[in-house]
């Protein structure tokens, strides 16, 4: 089977570009990545046709050997339609995300955040204790208060994450959630 080198190179470049975009945090860029990558893979499927030939219209008198293989094109058409649908869905997600949080950045896993936050706070506390050695607990009250506030904000965030989905129908038809202050989120904003 002969394969067009141009198609292959295009496929490789597109897939590489898409893969880079896929690794970003912004959902819009990820969507771009999926589209570009998807086009690269589609070209790869098209490349399996081999040498280009006559249009695959099988009326009498057409030499079957010289006709382009129609099957990869059918597969690619299917894939294109599916990509269209996913694009629409992800765009809706991006819009909703920016409506709710003001950004389209994908946040960390709740569990990850908790582990990271705990480690951070334990570290800070050890440092503070070292710095204020022998001064008694009153000396660094403000810092400890601040730490507790962060822990509490995170716990509240998790409670929301757990409890909000409890009521299926309320979530769906309810209005937008109130713009609740979520300090944990702002701290975690990758920007």
């Amino acid at each position: 089977m002969t394969v067009s080198l141009t198609l292959l190179i295009c496929a490789v470049v597109l897939t590489a570009v898409g893969a880079v975009l896929l690794h970003t945090r912004s959902l819009t860029r990820v969507l771009m990545g999926v589209i570009v990558c998807g086009n690269g893979v589609n070209l790869l499927v098209l490349a399996t046709t081999g040498r280009a030939g006559a249009p695959p219209l099988l009326y009498p008198g057409v030499a079957h050997a010289r006709v382009t293989d129609p099957l990869p094109q059918a597969i690619v058409l299917t894939a294109v339609v599916i990509t269209l649908a996913t694009t629409a869905f992800v765009l809706a997600m991006v819009y909703r995300s920016s409506q709710l949080t003001g950004t389209d950045f994908v946040q960390d896993d709740v569990e990850d955040r908790r582990v990271v936050l705990r480690a951070e706070i334990a570290e800070e506390r050890a440092e503070l204790r070292e710095r204020h050695r022998g001064e008694g607990p009153r000396a660094w009250r403000d810092e400890r208060r601040e730490q507790r506030r962060r822990l509490r904000a995170d716990r509240a965030f998790q409670a929301r994450a757990r409890d909000a989905p409890g009521d299926l129908w309320d979530d769906i038809l309810g209005a937008d959630p109130p713009q609740s202050p979520s300090p944990a989120r702002q701290e975690n904003d990758p920007r």
């Binding site: 896929l22 990558c37 869905f89 997600m93 709710l100 949080t101 929301r160 769906i172």
Partner: peptide, 20 residues
């Protein structure tokens, strides 16, 4: 479903993994 914040966050992981 419902497009709440935790679900969007969880959903975006799922969607990206599935698409890839």
């Amino acid at each position: 479903l419902g497009g709440t914040e935790p679900r969007l966050r969880a959903g975006s992981t799922y969607v990206v993994v599935s698409l890839v």
